[in-house]
Write a protein that binds this DNA or RNA. Structure first.
Length: 293
DNA sequence: CCTGCCGCCTGCGCGC
DNA sequence: TGCGCGCAGGCGGCAG
């Protein structure tokens, strides 16, 4: 690549827990210990959750030092000196990159007083964003409703099974409900249900506890595998911290596989509309609930 | 309180 | 060739 050439925005999968965890690790490497010298907000939508607006967001961060980067589910936050934090969500297409140059999708640029590379928030579809969180070092108030995720050491498996079974909804809706268990999106929900051989419309209230537990275990397993596949990508060529793992190129059994044979039984994977998006499942391995009326 | 649905966004691939 | 449309989907807010 000739000098001065701007690297293109690398493609990314929609970030769920493993991708966000890779971003967290990358940010910790590239931002922790550094003191913010300036913040440029190029698109106000990126800080729409910050009550004071873009100017206030930038002003309040000048001179603050990033101590560490934490995560819960798909949210991550920069812990600042003084007990405050910057809460961030990648949305559909958000990335943190080190030195994104003049990417057309650059939304926020952080510069540091060490004169080192910028940390840039790039987000094509602007569903992501950031906000300053006063006193949010331990847990930003804005995400107090977000449940622990499956990879959190304090995750309460039995309690989560109970909470899911207490709901009157379908199992996939429950998996996507971040107040029940966080970090799961459409892709890992479909993969977990496929592994556990559970149809996505099964009603949680009458699902055996061991089945709900098996779905949670499957989700934890598939996310752990994706994390293992992507955990070293943040310091690669582009020095991006976008969390792209390559996992999706090879390892998906159900998601996006409409018409392709189920890796377990060979039946064609089916796609159905679900919540204005899609559900993918094996019609043979994952049986719809029998109607017992 | 509980559950389900809408709207926010942009780029891509498809059909006409 | 170009245009319009459907699709992708996390989450806050809100309706019922």
């Amino acid at each position: 690549m000739p000098p001065g050439t701007v690297p293109p925005d690398p493609p990314t999968a929609v970030p769920e827990l493993p991708e966000v965890e890779v971003v967290r690790r990358g940010l910790e490497v590239h931002a922790a210990g550094r003191t913010i010298a300036s913040v440029i907000v190029l698109n106000d939508r990126a800080v729409r959750r910050h009550p004071g607006g873009a100017a206030d967001f930038a002003a309040v961060l000048i001179g603050r030092t990033v101590l560490q980067v934490r995560r819960r589910g798909k949210y991550l936050w920069l812990v600042l000196d003084g007990g405050d934090a910057v809460l961030a969500h990648l949305g559909m297409s958000g990335q943190f990159r080190v030195g994104a140059g003049d990417s057309p999708h650059l939304r926020v640029r952080f510069a540091f007083d060490d004169g080192g590379p910028d940390v840039d928030f790039v987000d094509q579809r602007t569903f992501g964003g950031m906000a300053f969180s006063p006193g949010g070092a331990e847990l930003p108030a804005a995400i107090s409703h977000i449940a622990l995720d499956l990879l959190d050491p304090a995750f309460d498996r039995a309690g989560t099974v109970r909470a899911i079974r207490a709901r009157h909804t379908e199992i996939k809706r429950a998996l996507l409900d971040q107040s029940l268990v966080s970090g799961i999106g459409n892709i890992y929900a479909d993969e977990a249900l496929w592994r556990a051989k559970v149809h996505y419309t099964r009603p949680t209230a009458v699902l055996p506890g061991r089945t709900v537990g098996a779905v949670l275990d499957a989700a934890a397993a598939v996310m752990s595998e994706a994390l293992a596949a992507g955990g070293t990508s943040f310091d690669a060529l582009y020095v991006n911290v976008n969390g792209d793992s390559g996992y999706f190129d090879r390892s998906l059994a159900a998601y996006g596989q409409e018409g392709l044979p189920c890796p377990r039984c060979g039946a064609p994977i089916r796609r159905e509309p679900f919540m204005n998006r899609s559900s993918y499942f094996c019609p043979r391995c994952q049986r719809r609930a029998r109607w017992t009326g």
